[in-house]
């Protein structure tokens, strides 16, 4: 990530960018509060023009630590890319949805919600996507425990003994 993007963003949103010890890191940490505005800015500013959202990854740093969402952005025009990281509170993980800016975020955010229970506020259709609607729990969290049964079907925790 070029330093220009960082400086542009810092100028526009001085409060929202988390200071990093090493400026050379190739990502940008953002506070969740102003994320929607930042995203709009990233998408619409002509010299940035991040028109393509590559991927949204949810990360769980363990039962005692925090959750995190990572956005990989890319600009088809300027051919530069940017990784945005947003650290979230584990008890009430909420982050503004960017589904209206990049439509692809619709499904990506649903997937992250499905797996981590991170709520994307402002998402118009935040439902589970890969798992059934009535599944309990957030499977990719590190403290997830597999349920015994699902609708009477045994969810095999460990492989059944062969004998």
């Amino acid at each position: 990530m070029s330093q220009d993007i960082r400086t542009i963003l810092k100028k526009a949103f001085p409060a929202a960018i988390v200071e990093q010890e090493a400026e050379t890191e190739d990502y940008l940490e953002v506070r969740p509060g102003e994320w929607f505005e930042i995203a709009t800015f990233l998408h619409d500013t002509p010299e940035l023009k991040f028109d393509s959202l590559q991927c949204i990854t949810g990360v769980d740093w363990g039962p005692e630590a925090h959750l995190e969402v990572r956005y990989n952005l890319h600009s088809m025009e300027h051919k530069h890319k940017l990784e945005i990281r947003i650290v979230l509170d584990r008890t009430a993980p909420e982050v503004p949805s960017v589904e209206k800016i990049w439509r692809v975020a619709d499904w990506f955010e649903r997937e992250v919600y499905d797996m981590y229970g991170i709520v994307f506020t402002g998402h118009r259709n935040l439902r589970r996507i890969l798992l059934p609607d009535d599944w309990v729990g957030w499977p990719l969290r590190k403290d997830y425990e597999t349920p015994e049964t699902y609708h009477g079907i045994v969810v095999p925790k460990i492989k059944e003994e062969w004998e």
Binding site: Q54, C55, T57, G58, V59, D60, R70, N72, R103, V104, D106, W107
Partner: peptide, 29 residues
């Protein structure tokens, strides 16, 4: 575009692997 987001914690087991599958977004549209 087939993307892999890999987070390593320095162990022989990956901490997190996210696969960004192209067909996922294609179906989205």
């Amino acid at each position: 575009d087939l993307g892999y987001y890999i987070i390593s914690s320095g162990k022989p087991v990956p901490f997190r692997i996210k696969m960004r599958s192209p067909a996922f977004t294609a179906l989205c549209v």
